[in-house]
Write a protein that binds this DNA or RNA. Sequence first.
DNA 1: ATATCACATTGAATAATTTTGATATGAGGT
DNA 2: ACCTCATATCAAAATTATTCAATGTGATAT
Lengths: 114, 114
Amino acid sequence: MSTVYEKHARIFKAFCDEKRLRILELLRGGEKCACVLLEQLELGQPGLSYHMKILVESGIVESRQEGKWTHYKISEKGSAYAGNLLKELTKPNAVTEEKTAAKSKSNSIIEGEA
Amino acid sequence: MSTVYEKHARIFKAFCDEKRLRILELLRGGEKCACVLLEQLELGQPGLSYHMKILVESGIVESRQEGKWTHYKISEKGSAYAGNLLKELTKPNAVTEEKTAAKSKSNSIIEGEA
DNA sequence: ATATCACATTGAATAATTTTGATATGAGGT
DNA sequence: ACCTCATATCAAAATTATTCAATGTGATAT
């Protein structure tokens, strides 16, 4: 079973780890091959692979295969989504309590939210 | 030694855990006493205290003492800071590579960033 | 002063994440 | 086919985060 909380937590995990923040900083300079990231970071190859997987699964980073190489870059779409989600998650919501039976059309990006 | 990465990671830890996302959701409905949060969550009292500490340390939540009670609410300032930080961390930065010696006046919220 | 209530802290137990070394996979090149 | 190179995956170990029970603290009430 996967809750909406799990899904949201997965997105922010991208930003919860020092190594991943370092990687994102490098990717701010533009798309980079794993091999380039590897030489800039104090990380073994499986370690980098592990963190890249988390970053890609969060949607913050996109990967692109080119022959033997994997190129990574920051996803504009994923980043925008995360930014909006953070806003939503901290925005006052007067009706949080009353989970009314009558469901209204929603314009929230949070699944299952009225 | 505390790096800027650690500091940033600490902020986003608020959003990396299901329980904390649940708590934030409750706080979106307005300021709440720990005792109220406790009855809405599947968490023991020390567990709540543990998570509230992380939330307060992240700056996303503020606490206010009132006699025996502790009231918590989402910090507008902290939330805005986190939102802006997320944007910065995912914003393209053409000059990430060239850590030039000549330091220019910065308008970045990221410490030590040009 | 003692008692109680609300919450914080501690420490041990458990669970999740991260690191590391070994091995697997898949794309080229010879 | 075989060999390399780049990266992914696996499994064990190391580290870190979370839970839980017990105890501590500080505020109020009697």
